[in-house]
């Protein structure tokens, strides 16, 4: 554990909490892609199948459970409790375009062709593209509420911090995981355009609005 990894985890947690609070306090999930949230829930389930077989630390186990519960809570709020506010007309990204390639790739490129390992790999590939339905939704409507952009910024920061963590671990521990790193870089790159808009607009008090 290093400071970059910890900051990344905290940024991830903050992102998840921002989203839950936004939905809970506004009693609405307008502007949020339910499809991205389903993908994140699937990601956590596939990755944390090792919750009971691979003990790392109390910290790891607790965080895994928190991420799982929070992602299921978000999906529940969107598809059950505040279903009426869910903007499904704009949430039209086809999930099979992400899930099927992630399944195929995890069967071909993995560290070990074993069930738990393939699920872990699938979760890594799926997470790297899970935000696409949300970014697609923002581009479709041409704007995002500032709270939604704070959520995306926290989520993107988590990925960027993990890259710094991997660089640190490579030099300090000789540790690297090619699959996690390459997928992580892909995932972070997807946020770059958004980061640019966030810094040039949202931080200056403007609404995140895409150029027409």
């Amino acid at each position: 554990m290093n400071v970059f990894r910890l900051s990344g985890d905290v940024a991830h947690l903050i992102a998840i909490i921002i989203l839950l609070l936004k939905i809970w306090t506004s009693r609405s999930c307008a502007g949020i892609s339910g499809k991205s949230q389903i993908l994140f829930a699937v990601t956590f389930v596939a990755r944390y199948l090792d919750l009971f077989t691979n003990y790392v630390s109390i910290y790891n186990s607790v965080m895994k459970i928190v991420y799982l519960l929070a992602s299921f809570g978000t999906v529940y709020l969107m598809y059950m409790k505040f279903k009426a506010t869910y903007d499904h007309n704009h949430d039209t990204f086809r999930l099979e375009f992400l899930i099927l390639p992630a399944i195929a790739l995890s069967l071909i490129i993995n560290h070990d062709f074993a069930v738990i390992e393939v699920f872990w790999t699938f979760s890594i590939y799926l997470e790297s593209v899970a935000i696409l339905p949300q970014l697609f939704m923002v581009s479709k409507t041409g704007e995002a509420e500032s709270i939604t952009s704070h959520y995306l910024f926290a989520l993107g920061s988590y990925r960027a911090l993990y890259i710094v963590n991997w660089i640190y671990r490579y030099y300090m521990e000789g540790f690297y995981d090619m699959i996690a790193t390459l997928a992580g870089i892909v995932q972070t790159v997807l946020y770059c355009d958004f980061f640019y808009l966030y810094i040039t607009k949202v931080l200056k008090g403007k609404k995140l609005q895409l150029p027409a």
Binding site: D9, N60, H111, E117, W120, N165, Y176, D177, I179
Partner: peptide, 10 residues
Amino acid sequence: ILKSFSHDEL
């Protein structure tokens, strides 16, 4: 593959 997988990250 030098250092392989030991999934200790989240």
